[in-house]
Nucleic acid binder design. Structure first.
Lengths: 200, 200, 200, 200
DNA sequence: AATGAATGAGAATTCATTCAT
DNA sequence: TATGAATGAATTCTCATTCAT
């Protein structure tokens, strides 16, 4: 990659990051190209040169966001900590500011461009799936997950928790109950009627 | 209420319903006042006469939506069916088209007017809380819910399920797994190691 | 027509006339909506309320122009003056400023929206045709036009002259030669080899 | 001319031709520098290096177009075919696609830069004039043109025909009438009352 | 000489809101 | 009360032109 290209790539990333930050703060639809331009210290036209139109910029920002999420997740799965620790991190760690942005991207993509959105979700799923399988395998092997449950359902269950706890409000309300909440994760509402080997 | 007022109230409701339908189809931010006016067969100014500005209209539409949700929930709690049936309905019945609108209202309110939003959520919670307590009480009494769990956590847990299954995509993916998913609801990932008295 | 409508129609006409004048002075593509708005003393949005988009405005202005041309032509045909006088007027009178606008409308319509353009030309032709026939009939009856010539060709021939002499440059160059030019109109390049009964 | 210059001249011509083709297809005002650059396989800046600004490019393209027209005309005059044949060719042969581009250049130049435009017209006229005189002389000598007509008027008359028949629409409508139309060219509307020695 | 990157100025268009009746 | 008409402000996007290498 020559000097031109490298600089160019860097600028593209600058723009994406600026737009991501603004999207997080004000929501996607509220942010104008001119604001992004100002924040990224480029002219509006430069943005158009790189992304052609606003939709493309949003799309690429969404991709950027998802790529980050994915690599975070993979890193977590590979970490050398006990299974319940991993789950706790996955469920409780309201990852930085990412709070509500997920839903908004989701909404935006669904409404305007459902095809691309699906494509993205798909590729994301495919990337993530193997690691999810690995995680579930680990859980089953170590006796934390019922072996009779299908991976499909387990995955949805985990994702549900992860998504839910990312909401700002929720994470607030959870603060004093996080232990209990993790326990519910494993034992459901019915609870564990036996000796608690989990030590959550 | 005299004839004037009644007619007036009817018109207000017409407008709210029109805006709600449009919000559901196109998302809140995409819908303009003029579109709402057209759909409700009134002039734009009439909308301003009733609601003063767009924000108020959205706010009232949100209230309208929440009131419906609440009364649905209360009706469900009062129904004379076994506890697990209630839960199933709550969790699996992807209530009509209401699908993603919830999240969008949520996003919108958080971003623009967090104070009012909180007020609304609060009053909503207060209205719903007693019935939730009743529901939880029923569950605990009949042995479906671990008595040691706090109502707070139980409520969040149930809401999490309810919200999650409302997403269009999710309900698609769930179709063949709904039984298993309900089971997870009660037993969590650890699963039930004993005889299954639930008969889900 | 009530007061509202009348005022509204008047405003629409104001806008069309403003845009027509500007088109004539600067050419169609050079004129922006905001300039038209300024000249018509309305806001840009008012123009959009009436015409929806720039193309529609241009289209209606074109229609307005053509309607004027047509009624001018019809008036001329109905005038009570000798045939050669009518021709002279038709050919030589470089009608006010209308100079080059015709061609520009023509170009614009061809390039962007050939369908509508054709429709307009057609309706125009249909309106004008009967009067053209009348004019030609008059010419043939009085011995100014060769009876063997087809109306089609005669019409094109006359139009060709009319169009050509409308060009600013041409009318300049013609000034000292207009008599001769009218003569050519009747006798072509070959000239009249007999006594000149026309008295042009 | 050394290699450098030759290559450079070639590139300049490439650009002019690209712009000419685009102008013909989309109209002058609709074509952007970047499109021309793409079509000519050069960078935008290269165009600026050669032509300084868009106006100059258009101007040179116009010159290029006119030069072609002129040399076509001169070739025609020099051809060894009977006079009426020459006229037919001049009048009826809707030269390739050049159709409406003439008018557009004309409009453009008039509106924006009437001075240069005049200069161009002038030089063009000067170049063409001698050959026009030759053509007219030939016509008069062979009895096809009335000797009393001024060259000025004859020239305008011929140009009028040539221009008119170049329009796409016109040439369509003319198809079945071309013979008759040529006849009108020579005899005007009054027609030839004697034996027809022209054999058109 | 040639070009990828960048931009200021301005274009069409949309929208929430107000005016006047 | 109800509404047709009108608008200021903002938004997306385009384009001729210049910068920097």
């Amino acid at each position: 990659m020559d000097g031109f290209k490298r600089r160019s790539e860097k600028k593209k990333l600058d723009i994406i990051q600026a737009s991501f930050l603004l999207f997080m703060e004000y929501g996607i639809q509220k942010v104008s190209i001119s604001e992004i331009a100002k924040k990224a210290h480029v002219s509006q036209v430069t943005i158009y040169n790189y992304f052609e139109n606003k939709h493309n910029l949003i799309y690429e920002t969404y991709k950027f966001y998802i790529d980050n999420e994915v690599s975070d997740f993979i890193k977590l799965v590979k970490e050398d900590i006990p299974f319940p620790e991993k789950i706790k991190k996955l469920i409780l760690q309201s990852r930085q500011a990412s709070a509500q942005i997920h839903e908004e991207f989701y909404q935006y993509m669904i409404q305007d461009y459902s095809k691309e959105h699906n494509y993205l979700e798909l590729s994301y799923t495919e990337q993530v799936l193997p690691y999810f399988d690995e995680l579930i395998h680990e859980g089953k092997k170590n006796g934390f997950i019922d072996k009779q449950l299908s991976n499909q359902v387990i995955m949805m269950y985990i994702q549900m928790f992860a998504e839910y706890t990312k909401k700002e409000e929720v994470s607030m309300a959870l603060l004093p109950n996080s232990e209990e909440f993790s326990k519910v994760f494993f034992y459901g509402l019915f609870g564990y009627k036996d000796t608690n080997k989990l030590n959550l």
